[in-house]
């Protein structure tokens, strides 16, 4: 019997087995606040798009769960065991060294995705699982896009910046900037500064 692992804002996650493998079933549930037309099209489109993006991410060697099956609002994914990075950061359970190593890994993984035209869309510590080997696994591509848009890539970096301390962010950014074979990182960071200036009533500097 599938067991509920977690309930997020848009989906519930069920643990089960599929073809003898431990899996997570991601079930996008009906949201009663929005009208049926918007709700069903969002659930269907996001499920399909998430499957497409995760397959692309697997193909380029990024650490993401494998997609085993796709339904109209259901995805079956291989299960990754480990600790959520946001819990590690909040609880300070990993020692300092580990967290910095993991943040570097998260930066490299993001550079790998971006180099291959994949944007995550919600790249925060809540969407990274750390396995026993201290490797970062990226989950939840529900807001992802297949695009090389600098703007979308910059939003990925911005969301991580907002979700961790300045020290952890600088570690993340350093590895993002120095990842091999990825030349657009500087442009992305420049765009990030633009976005931050565009935020409502942000202090703006002249020149």
């Amino acid at each position: 019997m599938p067991k509920i692992i977690d309930k997020g804002a848009e989906a519930r996650l069920l643990g089960s087995t599929f073809l003898g493998v431990d899996v997570v079933i991601k079930d996008r549930v009906r949201k009663n606040y929005r009208i049926e037309e918007i709700d069903s099209s969002i659930r269907k489109e996001r499920t399909r798009s998430e499957a497409r993006i995760m397959c692309a991410a697997s193909a380029c060697g990024a650490r993401v769960p494998l997609v085993l099956w796709v339904g109209s609002s259901v995805l079956v994914l291989t299960r990754i065991y480990g600790a959520m990075l946001n819990r590690l950061v909040e609880g300070g359970r990993a020692d300092g060294q580990d967290l910095f190593g993991i943040m570097s890994d998260a930066g490299r993984q993001l550079a790998l995705l971006h180099r291959n035209g994949i944007v995550h869309g919600d790249y925060t510590t809540a969407n990274i699982i750390v396995d026993r080997q201290h490797k970062a696994w990226i989950i939840d591509f529900g807001l992802g896009e297949l695009t090389s848009s600098l703007e979308s890539r910059a939003v990925d970096v911005l969301l991580m910046k907002r979700s961790v301390s300045a020290a952890l962010y600088s570690c993340f950014l350093e590895s993002y900037l120095s990842s091999r074979g990825y030349d657009d990182a500087d442009k992305v960071v420049a765009r990030l500064a633009d976005i931050e200036r565009r935020g409502r009533y942000q202090k703006r500097t002249l020149g």
Binding site: G8, A9, E10, Y33, R34, I35, I38
Partner: peptide, 18 residues
């Protein structure tokens, strides 16, 4: 109106859980 309010609500629900 339905689209705009749904967007606000989705973001609010996510922030509520976070």
């Amino acid at each position: 109106q339905e689209t705009a309010f749904s967007m606000l609500c989705e973001a609010t629900e996510r922030a509520l859980l976070l």
